[in-house]
């Protein structure tokens, strides 16, 4: 038996070494780390100033055309929204008061919604929007002298918690609340290489933003409102005869780019 094993071993050894076959294999491991990248490039003045020192400006308002240009690059499906906020939360921060605080009906709690935006081009991914006056800011600014303004149509979405994304009844610049494929989020891409689609002047990754404030006379901000159509002008919110307290006010506009949600 031992001889048999030994013979087999010798045969195997000779077959393995003397008549070895050429075969060998090497391998390489390849890893790919795709990190989510969302980049928002914004061209804008550090501060957009509205100075109302002429009666004509109270009536007609002041418009800052294309004061902000937004350029998006994203490796994932994305939404973009603007949100007005302030230290006070949902009203402008009064930095200075003129005329000793105004009269008895002078109101310093100005709604953030008195700031209007107009975006170009329109939101193309807002299919899941529901219940609001507008899904974006693409509507033209209404005539400042119109007798029956559609309140809130261009008013900025505002919130004391600006990093909480707007709901389905609020405005987005691009995309919307929800994740319906192809409808509620713009596809990944970049303003660097995208081309405008049919009928578009800009790509899905480039927007210009106009700003307008119309105080009116008396200064009640007749176009202010939320996106559900509720008026937020000073008379409606306070009482007949109310008007804006002369002074310096500030608010903050944030542009938030986030993965589709």
């Amino acid at each position: 038996m031992k001889k048999c094993f030994l013979s087999f071993a010798l045969v195997a050894m000779f077959s393995g070494l003397s008549f070895g076959q050429l075969i060998d294999e090497k391998n390489v491991t390849v890893t790919m780390d795709l990190q989510p990248v969302l980049q928002l490039h914004m061209t804008t003045p550090d501060q957009v100033d509205f100075v109302f020192d002429d009666i004509r400006e109270y009536y007609s308002g002041i418009i800052k055309y294309a004061a902000t240009i937004l350029k998006v690059s994203s490796s994932v499906t994305w939404d973009l929204y603007a949100v007005g906020t302030s230290q006070a939360g949902t009203i402008w921060d009064q930095q200075m008061t003129y005329s000793g605080g105004g009269g008895a009906n002078a109101i310093s709690a100005l709604p953030l919604s008195c700031l209007e935006l107009h975006q170009y081009e329109a939101n193309r991914y807002d299919a899941n929007a529901a219940g609001g006056t507008a899904t974006d800011y693409s509507g033209l600014f209404q005539d400042a002298q119109t007798a029956a303004p559609v309140v809130g149509q261009n008013s900025i979405f505002y919130s004391a918690t600006p990093y909480t994304a707007p709901g389905v009844d609020q405005k987005y610049i691009q995309g919307h609340s929800g994740t319906v494929a192809g409808d509620d989020g713009a596809p990944g891409g970049s303003y660097l290489i995208a081309s405008p689609g049919v009928g578009q002047d800009f790509t899905d990754y480039y927007f210009t933003i106009d700003y307008r404030i119309v105080p009116g006379l008396p200064a009640i901000f007749p176009f202010a409102g939320d996106n559900l159509g509720n008026a937020e002008d000073l008379e409606t919110v306070n009482a007949a005869g109310a008007y804006a307290n002369p002074g310096v006010y500030t608010m903050n506009v944030k542009y938030i780019l986030l993965e589709d949600q």
């Binding site: 076959q21 050429l22 075969i23 060998d24 294999e25 090497k26 391998n27 390489v28 491991t29 390849v30 890893t31 790919m32 780390d33 795709l34 990190q35 989510p36 994203s74 490796s75 994932v76 596809p187 990944g188 891409g189 970049s190």
Partner: peptide, 22 residues
């Protein structure tokens, strides 16, 4: 690798083998 914009963010792996055989 040119990933474009349609891929899900994450870490992925493959192995590439090289085989020499007579």
């Amino acid at each position: 690798i040119k990933p474009g914009y349609i891929l899900k963010p994450g870490a992925y792996q493959i192995k590439i083998h090289f085989c020499l055989v007579e």
